[in-house]
Design a protein around this nucleic acid. Structure first.
Lengths: 142, 142
DNA sequence: CCTTGACCCTGTAGCGGCTACAGGCCCCAT
DNA sequence: ATGGGGCCTGTAGCCGCTACAGGGTCAAGG
């Protein structure tokens, strides 16, 4: 029976007010009731829904996957295999990103390690970045 | 003296033609000469510059940092301390992202491990996502 | 009763870094 | 001369918000 304003919802879930309105615009949150003064009025079900969304977002699920999870979650009788699939796919994606970033980190660290703090003209970082040996006009006018 | 079309530049650097035009629009690449038929004509200096940009982008530097690196790289006499600073800052950022994603991965993996492939109504993933115990109307109408 | 100020409303534009058109022009080979 | 590739400009879209501008609403204090 609780009547929550959009600000209440924002505080309770750590979401920004604009973000909640955005979720409504894209159909992720339902259009709530309105007060006589045209304020949005939410109830506990909507609070739960938003909490779910935020938690999934915090775990890095993109909005379309959040949408899918919400759809599946309403379907209490079905197997949760679909949910498991989405979660595993997302996990694989996260692991891929970690690998990419780790390779990147090693490359950056190597590059930085070679920098001897001399002048730019013999900076190893610039050399690493520029694949062709720098000619007389190094990287042209901007 | 080589006269390169935008397509040549694209092929040589693995960049899309539209991206090169975009770099020109935002002032990252200089406006090139034009042929009588109004085609862009590039030279080797511009090819070097674009290679540099792409390499830096591949290493994850955002465009404003690429801009800064380009500016500093033209300044052959100065110390490369500024370049070193940018690179170290970026490395720190990458390491922070790796840490964040690693924490995320652990959380996702734990969540998935608890999923017993039963019905959604007792799916551990949904439970993990929904902080409040699900009431009779679980996650409300969409 | 009136004012202040916090909250709320709609609508639109911007971020980064491209990407994808639409609707046309140019150039070379056949 | 014609076909098809490449090139041109300009605009809109992607994701997931964020930040306004320009107003309305409401509760508390004087």
């Amino acid at each position: 029976m609780a009547h929550l304003s959009i600000g209440d919802l924002a505080k309770a879930t750590g979401t920004q007010v604009e973000t909640i309105r955005y979720y409504e615009r894209i159909g992720l949150m339902p259009e709530p009731e309105r007060s006589p003064g045209n304020y949005r009025v939410y109830d506990l079900a909507q609070l739960r829904r938003l909490s779910f969304i935020r938690r999934a977002r915090d775990l890095g699920f993109p909005l379309d996957q959040v949408r899918a999870l919400l759809g599946l979650s309403g379907d209490g009788a079905r197997s949760c295999a679909g949910i498991d699939t989405i979660a595993r796919r997302h996990l694989a994606e996260v692991e891929r990103k970690i690998d990419d970033l780790t390779a990147l980190r090693d490359e950056l660290a190597g590059m930085i390690g070679r920098c001897g703090q001399g002048s730019v003209s013999d900076c190893r970082i610039i050399e690493t970045l520029a694949p062709v040996a720098p000619g007389p006009a190094p990287l042209s006018p901007g």
